[in-house]
Nucleic acid binder design. Sequence first.
DNA 1: TTAGATATCTCCAGAAACTATAGGTTTGGA
DNA 2: TCCAAACCTATAGTTTCTGGAGATATCTAA
Lengths: 138, 138
Amino acid sequence: MLSIGDLSKRTGVKVPTIRYYEQMGLLSAAERSEGNQRRYERQDLERLAFIRHARDLGLDISAIRELIALSQHPHQPCGNVDRIASEHLKSVRDKIEKLKKLEQELERIVSHCDGDHAIEDCYVIRSLSDHGLCDGEH
Amino acid sequence: MLSIGDLSKRTGVKVPTIRYYEQMGLLSAAERSEGNQRRYERQDLERLAFIRHARDLGLDISAIRELIALSQHPHQPCGNVDRIASEHLKSVRDKIEKLKKLEQELERIVSHCDGDHAIEDCYVIRSLSDHGLCDGEH
DNA sequence: TTAGATATCTCCAGAAACTATAGGTTTGGA
DNA sequence: TCCAAACCTATAGTTTCTGGAGATATCTAA
């Protein structure tokens, strides 16, 4: 039996966050010690690792709740699971695209600034003020 | 003189967001009409465009506040301006790296799932549960 | 000029996913 | 047995907005 602190150390999820996940219904309410402290088992460790992993992947809490619910009806076809993951893949790709544009623009802005002239002539400030100096859309 | 609605239409920033920026000290308190409604001038339009552009680039409010403060001392050298933009560029690059790893992992997950078998065999669920199945770190 | 529609005002609450604090109780090791 | 560390609950704060309620102002058309 693990305390909440043990669980935290093993998964890297902070203690208040574990309690928060319980409150959000991602973890079922843990057993309690005589003194009312949470006690966990291996299953809970796995569940929390699942949640953490999914959060790292950027899935939001409702998507994770959905996946957990699906995984508890194991004889259903897994089309929905595939759908959730595919949707998420799309959104990750969108994010990458947007960030790449930002990267280009910031590179361009920074490369014009040698850090050694007066602010009134600074390209960073000028280009932030004037969208017309940008190469692309954003 | 522009109303807050005009300003909103011209910049694409929603009305409550403009008021929020004023509250956060990014926009100075606007002049008021006799009936206490905000009235803006061209300068305010430019300032708001600057803020919007910087937000689009992902700079947070405190960074923007810093840039605005710096831009009000136009004869100082612009090293700090460069620093803020460079730091942000670095964090954008980090995010891109992380998201690319996620993209690969999700691709791998989705490609294993044809949406047509039972959940108990589904690779999505298995690999989310078991971090050991991942290719890389995240 | 006046009625009615639209825009604005302030203040407050909510969304997401935590994080932190306060004040009190339990546990585990010397 | 004692005390520090960990735990408990409840509540508030974080960030960047967004939306609503209820009251007031402004604009337009008749």
